[in-house]
Nucleic acid binder design. Structure first.
Length: 425
RNA sequence: GGAUGGGUGGCCGAGCGGUUUAAGGCACUGGUCUUGAAAACCAGCAGAGGUUAAUGCCUCUCGCGGGUUCGAAUCCCGCCCCAUCCGCCA
C-alpha cells in the first residue's frame, strides 16, 4: 500500500514509477477523491466540535436548572445534517483507497526495466552443469519407474496437479523439509513457526495477494482462504503491532503446505509435480528496520542458496526485472535450479524485499529512536520442497533409474542411500 | 454448539449517563540533589487522522460494529476474543 502523501507530494513522479512497473495509475482521480474527502472530513470535524461544545453547555445549564431547549434543538439539527456527510466521507475514503490498493509496489532503482523474464539479469551462478553419458530422464519418468511417484492415484483422489508419494520417496520429501528447517533455525538464525493454513482475508490483503489476485487462491465456505504461501501468515503475525526496534530483525521460518488454483496455467507443466495445486514450501520471512532491509535481502538470498549448495544442486540467481516481479516486491532475486531432465533452469526460490509496502497494509510498525516507523518485510522460499525433490531426482539420477540420496539428507533417511524400485501394491 | 464471568493506555487498575480534557499506581524518559548510584522530589509519558508557514488547534479511538441520547467507557442490540464448566472431537 502506498502512502497517500507520496502521491499528493509528487503525482507525476509517482505515476512514472508506477508505469515502470507496468501499472497505469490515474493520479488525478485519486487526488480528486482525496481532496473531496479532506474537505468533507474537515467540515465534519468542525460540526462535531460544535456538537461537543453544545453537549457541554447543556450539561452545565442543566446543573443550574437553566432552559436548554434551544441548545438541544441546535444539536439535534446539527446531528441530522452530519449523517449524510459522514457516509460521504467513508465512501470517498474507501474509493480513494480502493484505487491505491491495486497498485503494485514501486521498484528499487537497481531493478532492471523490462516487461517479462527476458529482461531479467543474471546475478550469479553456482555449480557445474552435469553431463550425463545417457539421456537424462525427467523426474516424473524416474519417479514412475521407481513406483514411488504416483500421479495415477493422485488423479483418482484429487484430479490433476496432485501427487502421491510412496515409501522412500515420501521420506525423502520429508527429509528435504526437515533439512531446510534445521539449516535455517540452527545456522541462519530463523525461528521456526507453525502457522495456520487457513487465514482471514486481511492476511492475504496485507501480503498483497488480495484484492487483485483472488482467483489464484482457494477460498473455503467459511470465508477462510487457503494460504498460497506461508509468507502471508508469517508477515502478518505482528499486524497492528508496534515492535521494539531493538528486537529487529525478526527472522521467521515455517514449513507449510501451499495451495494455488493455478488459474491461467492451463497446459503449463502438466506432467509431473512441478506445478501443483498443493505443495510444500519452507518459507523465510524477515522483519527489519528500514535501513536494514537491503542488506537483509542479500543475506536471505544466501540462506536460500545455502540449501542448494549443501544439496550440491547447480543453480543461478536472477534479478527480476520490473515486469516480472510480484505485486508487493520492490526487488526480487529468483533462485533457479538446474534440471538435467528438462535441460533447463527452473525457479525454486524467490527472495523479495517488500520494504514498507506490506507493513502499511498490515499496520505493522516499530519504535525507532526517531519515532514510529513501518517495518520492512522480506520473504523468500528456503526453498520449495516439491521442486527440491524434483531437482534431487533429476540431478542424482543414475543410468539404471535409481537415485542417490544427497549426503546431507542421509541422516534423515534412516540409512537409505539410494532410492530403488519399490513395488507399492 | 450450550451456560456463566470477563475484555479500560506499555502493564496493573478505578470509573458504570454530563467538572473523565480516562483517577491512582507500576514501568519508562528527562531534570534537581549526589563523587557515583539508589532513594526522594519535580516534570514528561498513547496512537491514527484533519488543519496550520509554525507554536498550536481540532476530530476519532475504553475488544469490534450498530443503536438510544443534546451528551455513552458507562444504557440497548449484534459480533469477536479470553477464562471456566458442559457437549463434541484429533
Amino acid at each position: 500500500m502506498h502512502d497517500i502523501r507520496a502521491i499528493r507530494d509528487d503525482p507525476e513522479g509517482f505515476a512514472a514509477a508506477c508505469s515502470r512497473r507496468g501499472a497505469v495509475v490515474d493520479t488525478a482521480a485519486i487526488l480528486a477523491l482525496d481532496a473531496e474527502w479532506r474537505r468533507v472530513v474537515t467540515a465534519n470535524q468542525e460540526a462535531q466540535e460544535r456538537r461537543n461544545a453544545l453537549a457541554r453547555e447543556i450539561g452545565e445549564a442543566k446543573r443550574t436548572d437553566k432552559d436548554t431547549a434551544d441548545l438541544e434543538a441546535e444539536a439535534t439539527a446539527l446531528k441530522a445534517r452530519m449523517a449524510d456527510s459522514e457516509s460521504d466521507a467513508a465512501r470517498l475514503q474507501s474509493e480513494r483507497d480502493g484505487l491505491i490498493a491495486v497498485l503494485p509496489n514501486l521498484a528499487d532503482a537497481d531493478v532492471p526495466d523490462g516487461q517479462d523474464e527476458s529482461a531479467n539479469r543474471l546475478h550469479r551462478a553456482w555449480g557445474e552443469i552435469p553431463s550425463f553419458s545417457y539421456d537424462a530422464q525427467e523426474h516424473w519418468a524416474l519417479g514412475e519407474s521407481l513406483g514411488t511417484l504416483d500421479f495415477t492415484r493422485a488423479a483418482l483422489l484429487s484430479g490433476s496437479r496432485f501427487t502421491v508419494l510412496h515409501g522412500a520417496m515420501a521420506r525423502l520429501h520429508r527429509a528435504l523439509a526437515s533439512f531446510m528447517l534445521d539449516l535455517h533455525t540452527s545456522e541462519h538464525g530463523y525461528r521456526e513457526t507453525g502457522v495456520p493454513h487457513l487465514v482471514l482475508e486481511r492476511v492475504l490483503f496485507g501480503a498483497g495477494q488480495l484484492p487483485k489476485f483472488g482467483e489464484d487462491v482457494f477460498r473455503t465456505t467459511t470465508d477462510h482462504w487457503l494460504i498460497p504461501t506461508s509468507e502471508g501468515p508469517l508477515a502478518a503475525l505482528y499486524a497492528d503491532d508496534t515492535l521494539d526496534g531493538a528486537k529487529l530483525p525478526l527472522r521467521l521460518t515455517a514449513r507449510t503446505s501451499c495451495f494455488r488454483s493455478e488459474a491461467g496455467a492451463a497446459g503449463r507443466d502438466t506432467r509431473g509435480m512441478l506445478r501443483q495445486h498443493e505443495f510444500e514450501k519452507v518459507e523465510m520471512v524477515s522483519l527489519t528496520a528500514e535501513e536494514d532491509s537491503e542488506r537483509e535481502l542479500e543475506r536471505m538470498l544466501s540462506c536460500a542458496e545455502a540449501v542448494l549448495q549443501k544439496l550440491e544442486l547447480p543453480h543461478r540467481v536472477q534479478v527480476l526485472c520490473c515486469g516480472d516481479m510480484g505485486f508487493s516486491a520492490a526487488k526480487t532475486y529468483d533462485l533457479e535450479v538446474w534440471l538435467p531432465g528438462q535441460k533447463n533452469y527452473r525457479e525454486i526460490s524467490s527472495c523479495s524485499n517488500c520494504r514498507d509496502f506490506q507493513a502499511r497494509r498490515l499496520g505493522m510498525r516499530y519504535r525507532a529512536q526517531e519515532g514510529r516507523k513501518f517495518v520492512h518485510t522480506l520473504n523468500g522460499s528456503g526453498v520449495a520442497v516439491g521442486r527440491a525433490l524434483v531437482a534431487v531426482l533429476e540431478n542424482y539420477q543414475q543410468e539404471n533409474g535409481e537415485v542417490a540420496v544427497p549426503e546431507v539428507l542421509r541422516p534423515y533417511m534412516g540409512g537409505v542411500e539410494k532410492l530403488t524400485s519399490e513395488s507399492v501394491l
